[in-house]
């Protein structure tokens, strides 16, 4: 199957998941549905050939879901008290050692320092002045080659300001106090 069909499938899945997370009344189910949307995005990154972004998205999404569950739905979850037994410790040490040994083989395949596989940075250094007319190459990267990234950062900042305004305003707090 070509990549496009998989992408459409994942995209439809994510749209259904985000609508479901808005409509579900139970907050724990809603948070888990948000996690499903994020994992779908991670899969989409993987299909588009960006494994680094997919990894970051995967880890970030799991962390996000854990934080949200702890913050919003902690009363309805029973937490088992952590007790360290001897067999559990041995299993943990064995897993850690095996990850360490495997990572030695994995790290040997990484490109050596200063010799990246992706050659795009050299192209920026060589052609940035002629192509963008900007003397500052960092600016030419963030405002010309990677301008969509900067647009996303601006959106993130805008959302942060909206969030702080919404959380800290007097209106919402007074209403909750009166109830």
């Amino acid at each position: 199957m070509p990549v496009d069909i998989w992408l459409y499938f994942i995209l439809g899945f994510m749209i259904i998941g985000s609508i479901a997370s808005l409509e579900i009344k139970n907050i724990l189910s809603s948070i888990i549905t948000i996690g499903v949307v994020g994992l779908g995005l991670s899969l989409a990154f993987l299909f588009l050939g960006a494994p680094d972004l997919a990894l970051v998205q995967f880890v970030f999404e799991i962390l996000c879901v854990i934080i949200l569950i702890r913050a919003f739905a902690k009363r309805s979850i029973e937490v088992r008290a952590l007790r360290r037994d001897v067999p559990e410790t041995i299993v943990a040490i064995i897993i850690l050692l095996s990850i360490f040994v495997l990572s030695i083989f994995a790290l040997a395949d990484l490109p050596s320092f200063g010799k990246p596989i992706v050659r795009v940075a050299e192209r920026y250094l060589a052609n940035a002045g002629a192509e963008t007319g900007s003397q500052n190459i960092v600016t030419s990267v963030i405002l010309n080659y990677r301008i969509y990234d900067t647009l996303g950062e601006v959106t993130v900042l805008f959302t942060a300001i909206l969030g702080s305004f919404t959380v800290l305003r007097k209106l919402g707090r007074k209403k909750r106090h009166a109830e």
Binding site: G129, E131, T132, G133, S134, Q135, T139, S140, L143, N144, I147, Y148, L151
Partner: peptide, 19 residues
Amino acid sequence: LANFLGIGTLYTLLSAGYI
């Protein structure tokens, strides 16, 4: 978000298009 202005002369203040 394409650069719609001319890129001008390098190293001058009014250069680099829309940056």
